[in-house]
């Protein structure tokens, strides 16, 4: 049985694709067979973040429309054996994705033995976002500690609770988790940024990870290597923890407090 995980947020630019790529890599590094699927039709980007943009021949819509078989469209990751990418199409046709087509592809991935299917949702609440979440078992809601992102996440939580297959079937609904990104402990300490607890309290959801704001995220996307692979980075460790929690481990949150600075560092700035 494959578990379908949607990475969603409502608002754009909060780190959905970065998170999808890192979670997919993290799961695959632990030996799971993982497919990560880009639902952002017309604005394909997961391929760039995964570093496989030049190997895209067929895409998600090609599979749905029968131009090729699923195997031809799945791009095998060059770093991790059990990881595959299904790119979005660059078509401008908004109706290229259909519920029936998406269901067929997901079923086929599950039948092929994939244990996890990570669905990278587009921003917004239109068709692509709707179909990315519709078949999900779990949702990772990516949120920045900032007013518009938190409000949009709440809107998405409302949709997860009503406009998904699991909600319609009434069998417990989609399991939801929060993942905070661009977290800056220093600004939280000085009262300029909402804390993990603030966001948790407003949205009323458990937190599966807190990824600190880090220059390594941009470097990773520049290089086309998901940030979780940069083991030196705090962002990587934070994503590793999130993956472990997705798999049921209990770990304390890291990187939520300002690193202690020495007396001299505080005196002389820096």
């Amino acid at each position: 049985m494959a578990e379908i995980i949607v990475v969603t947020s409502g608002k754009g630019g909060v780190g959905k694709t970065t998170t999808s790529a890192s979670i997919a890599c993290g799961l695959a590094q632990r030996g799971k067979r993982v497919a990560v699927v880009d639902f952002d039709i017309g604005l394909r980007n997961l391929d760039l973040i995964m570093g496989c943009e030049r190997r895209v021949v067929y895409d998600f819509v090609n599979v749905i429309q029968g131009d090729c078989v699923l195997k031809q469209a799945l791009i095998k990751d060059k770093r991790i054996d059990t990881l595959y990418v299904l790119a979005a199409s660059q078509t401008r046709d908004k109706d290229a994705l259909t519920g029936e087509g998406v269901r067929r592809v997901l079923d086929e991935l599950a039948a092929d033995g994939f244990e996890y299917i990570v669905c990278d949702s587009p921003a917004g609440i239109e068709k692509g976002a709707h179909l990315a979440m519709y078949f999900a078992d779990r949702a990772v809601v990516v949120v920045n500690p900032e007013v518009s992102s938190v409000r949009d996440s709440d809107r998405i939580l409302g949709l997860l609770a009503s406009k998904t297959l699991r909600a319609e079937q009434g069998n417990g609904g989609v399991k939801e988790h929060l993942l905070l990104t661009r977290y800056n402990p220093r600004r939280v300490a000085s009262g300029e940024m909402m804390s993990v607890d603030d966001v948790k309290e407003i949205l009323g959801l458990d937190v599966i990870g807190v990824v600190p704001e880090s220059p390594d995220v941009l470097s990773a996307s520049n290089a086309g290597a998901p940030v979780i692979l940069n083991v030196e980075s705090d962002a990587s460790r934070a994503y590793e923890d999130a993956v472990a929690r997705l798999l049921g481990e209990t770990l304390p949150l890291r990187f939520v407090e300002e690193p202690k600075r020495s007396f001299f560092a505080r005196m002389f700035g820096g």
């Binding site: 900032e146 007013v147 603030d198």
Partner: peptide, 10 residues
């Protein structure tokens, strides 16, 4: 703090 204002508004 602005964070507290944000939280109240939200």
């Amino acid at each position: 703090s602005t964070a507290r204002v944000a939280k109240e508004r939200l």
